[in-house]
């Protein structure tokens, strides 16, 4: 088969220099504003299919209708899956492994990704474990998903 493994040859280093400015959008703004200002987790509910999207969204992708009804989710939730990452984005070993989980909040039909806090021993975690969101104090909230520090296991 054709193809040549690279050994010693001319190389050139370059980049695609791009920086982005993202917005949360009409739908996402509700969630991040409520999180920053009130420390609350809000979503939007579809009147047709009854999905409760948390974080809030502008439209339901299934019914293709605008979502206007705001609902509040609880900081308590259940783990749907979890992992413990040892490798960083560049393939290097992480100094501090990162525990992450998929969590369904009470009052939401959707599932969100976030960090699992203070988990040193994975055997304590299982799918179905109950967790609670840890929300930063008001002065430290900036309207980011990181205003939630992560989820802590509820014993």
């Amino acid at each position: 088969m054709a193809g040549t493994q690279l050994r010693h040859i001319a190389k050139w280093r370059g980049e695609i220099p791009i920086e982005s400015l993202y917005t949360a959008g009409i739908g996402g703004q509700r969630f991040f504003k409520a999180l920053k200002e009130k420390g609350k987790l809000v979503g939007t509910r579809c009147r047709r299919c009854h999905q409760v999207f948390v974080p809030s969204r502008q439209f339901c992708e299934r019914c293709f209708v605008e979502l206007t009804e705001e609902v509040r989710a609880q900081p308590d939730g259940v783990i749907k899956s979890f992992s413990y990452a040892y490798i960083d984005h560049n393939g290097g070993r992480l100094k501090h492994p990162v525990a992450s989980a998929l969590v369904q909040l009470e009052g939401a039909t959707t599932v969100m990704l976030h960090r699992l806090l203070e988990v040193k021993d994975l055997s304590r975690v299982s799918i179905g474990s109950r967790v609670k969101a840890v929300i930063k104090p008001k002065g430290k909230r900036i309207g980011s998903i990181l205003d939630i520090e992560g989820f802590r296991l509820v014993e």
């Binding site: 993202y22 949360a24 959008g25 996402g28 991040f32 974080p55 749907k80 899956s81 979890f82 992992s83 413990y84 990452a85 490798i87 960083d88 984005h89 990162v98 992450s100 989980a101 998929l102 969100m112 990704l113 976030h114 960090r115 799918i127 980011s144 998903i145 990181l146």
Partner: peptide, 20 residues
């Protein structure tokens, strides 16, 4: 907004899927 600040990578999400 909801995921990039958590710095997820593909390995993470496939690990979550495999676990499930």
């Amino acid at each position: 907004f909801t995921e990039q600040p958590l710095k997820p990578n593909l390995l993470w999400i496939f690990a979550l899927e495999q676990n499930r």
